[in-house]
Design a protein around this nucleic acid. Structure first.
Lengths: 159, 159
DNA sequence: CAATACTGTTCACGCAGATTAACAGTGTTA
DNA sequence: TAACACTGTTAATCTGCGTGAACAGTATTG
């Protein structure tokens, strides 16, 4: 069995998993809306995923992930979240763009890199003192083009 | 004119640019080897790029980037390098995997994110004191699973 | 239970990008 | 210059993933 899924198939698995979280039942139209593709595309993707034993789906019925399908979906989702978190919390990218970028990057990072990045984010943010000074300083720099110390009076004037 | 290039076309442009650096002349076979595709794939890619005015190439001749083609190639290459640098210098990913990941991620990051990441890497590494302590500490942690402080005697014993 | 509205599938097709096999052009060298 | 080795192109074909149009199944509701 070939466990490696294409970016497209990963997206389908991820979408199914996310949709399954809220409501208990997942339908073709929902997937179609979430991914911005037409329904025939969904139908044929589901056929592939069913043949790969990653979902269960009988004609005109609901869609469910198999255990293996869920595993892959969780994996993709985790990569997505690590990336998004990094982009927002550390680089200071705005929410919307971060989510977009994460959607594309999630298919490109190797497991090792995702794991390391996750550790990095934890390391930087989950410490006793909270967000370290240098990071605050970086965010200020990358948003305003200068360092906090260099503009104290200016900053105070702006308030 | 549509300036947005597909990942595949970006790869061709990047490869041509890199090859052009060493020798002065770029040939189909070189591109084919560098990208791991067969020669007919290169020929048809070159046709597309020629039509998009991103390269100059006459039948059986050498390949050259136009100004616009060079601009795009440089852009892709820069994203590649920023990512690779980040992966190696900050996350501590090994050279080979970092290069691989960068090759895939370079097509997924938005310009804004690439720019911000570049600033981040500079911010962290290009300071008077050199690599900050916390980063050394992170690398030690992510490679050995514990903190330098926690194992001083152990570390000393190992020397 | 019929009419209606919605959901899902099938089919024919398009496009991007890759491949193999066969052919064409180029250049080196005996 | 003729033979040979190499480089590059063409043509036919494949796969993945998407589409619109037409059709089939399901469910709601008067």
């Amino acid at each position: 069995m070939d466990r490696e899924q294409s970016p497209s198939m990963e997206d389908y698995l991820e979408a199914i998993s996310v949709l399954a979280r809220g409501r208990k039942v997942v339908r073709v139209t929902q997937i179609s809306n979430m991914l911005g593709v037409k329904k025939p595309s969904v139908t044929s993707a589901l056929k592939k995923l069913r043949e790969a034993k990653l979902i269960e789906h009988e004609k005109y019925g609901y869609v469910e992930l198999t255990e293996e399908g869920q595993r892959i979906a969780d994996d993709v989702w985790q990569r997505h979240e690590v990336l998004r978190h990094f982009l927002v919390e550390i680089l200071g990218i705005d929410q919307e763009r971060a989510a977009e970028d994460a959607c594309k990057m999630e298919h490109a990072v190797s497991p090792v890199t995702a794991e390391r990045l996750s550790k990095f984010v934890d390391f930087v943010l989950s410490r006793p003192q909270g967000e370290p000074e240098w990071l605050k300083s970086f965010k200020h720099y990358s948003e305003h083009g200068n360092f906090p110390a260099e503009c104290k009076t200016k900053c105070e004037r702006e308030r």
